[in-house]
């Protein structure tokens, strides 16, 4: 079981600079927990009160997980997850 996770520049300090890391899990929440075990602190940058942070976008393959099942979205071996901070402001 392996899922490829693409890490944005701003979170690469957590992954020793790696653009892409591997993780396991059968839901996005489980993948994030696995990532946090390997790259401590990452979960807090993605999740707040059990849900994805408003200005963090997470994609499963080509789809924003907000249009799937959010943090409970099922993932499978071979899937690709992309994390991108929103480009937003006021």
């Amino acid at each position: 079981m392996s899922i490829e996770v693409r890490i944005p520049t701003i979170l690469r300090p957590y992954t020793d600079g790696a653009k892409q890391v591997e993780a396991t899990g059968d839901t996005l929440a489980a993948v994030i927990a696995d990532l946090d075990a390997r790259h401590v602190g990452l979960r807090d940058r993605l999740v707040e009160d059990g849900a994805l942070r408003r200005f963090i976008n997470v994609y499963l393959n080509d789809e924003d997980v907000r249009f799937l099942g959010g943090i409970d979205t099922p993932v499978a071996d071979g899937d690709s997850i992309t994390i991108l901070p929103a480009v937003a402001g006021g």
Partner: peptide, 8 residues
């Protein structure tokens, strides 16, 4: 805010 699909 950039649309999330456009962003990807």
């Amino acid at each position: 805010e950039f649309d999330s699909r456009d962003l990807l």
